[in-house]
Amino acid sequence: MVGNRHACSLYLLIWFMLKRNNIVKFKEALIERLLLCCSLLSVLTTAGIIWVLLSETIGFFKHVSVIDFLTDTQWTPMFTNKHFGILSLLSGTLVTTFIAIAVAVPLGLISATYLSEYATDKMRHIIKPLLEILAAVPTVVYGYFALLFVTPLLRQFIPGLSGFNALSAGLVMGIMIIPLVSSLSEDAMHAVPMGLREGAYALGSHKIQVAFKIVFPAALSGITAAVILAVSRAIGETMIVAIAAGQQPKFTVNPLVPIETITAYIVQISLGDTPHGTLEYSTIFVCGTTLFVITFFLNVISFKLKRRFQEIYE
């Protein structure tokens, strides 16, 4: 009788422990599922972007032929004589991007080399965060600066410069993306093993030779990743060009006249009172698709390159 009672309570105890263990297991599994859902949200975001863009873009191309879209050099969706040639917006985007890259890449790479190979640790720790501030300034502020400071300044040297132009917008955009180039390139250069440098020194090289003939080539995939990311950023930049580059779609490479970029066009239509659901309104989705496709390829290439340098040296 007594032994039976003991067995019974032992059984209860084991049952309780098992149950408690189950609760813990259940809770653990639940938490893992919840966290998984959080990270699936980013996949859903991409899916959402593609779905929104595609559903409108397909509707647009039922009215406009793809060939006209890609080869026509006029963009006049708001006129009675409608033309939908993306080239005129794309040329605006490429001109500002080119100017920005021409500023950001040399400055960014020189400062990355300097910070990685020449500066002391202490200096690097002070300067790097300061440079990051350049990327933290809101773009609308840069737009103001380009329109009301840089353009008037440049006009003193270039008399033919319009009030709105690709040049000052591109220059200011270049300043903004310097940290993007320098920070990632510096990481790549920093990851190059000390042994490579020491080997070169042992052969009698100078610091400048080590920097440009050893470290630079060894970090090339990381540096390329940084530059591609900068190009993608410049193509997608909106407020600076919307404020300072103008609103005139033009198929030109002249940086001194007002142009319009893809992003600035989207802003222009969003500000206006074009009724939703019209062909004119669906152009912003088509522009969005163009933008997304270009930046998507650049981002993925950059990601793969970046991963490669991380795999080699880390």
Binding site: I49, V52, V267, F296
Partner: peptide, 15 residues
């Protein structure tokens, strides 16, 4: 996620 970090902000507006 790496791609989303590089998608132009205006695309999020369209989304």
């Amino acid at each position: 996620i790496a791609n989303l970090a590089g998608v132009p902000s205006i695309i999020y507006g369209i989304l």
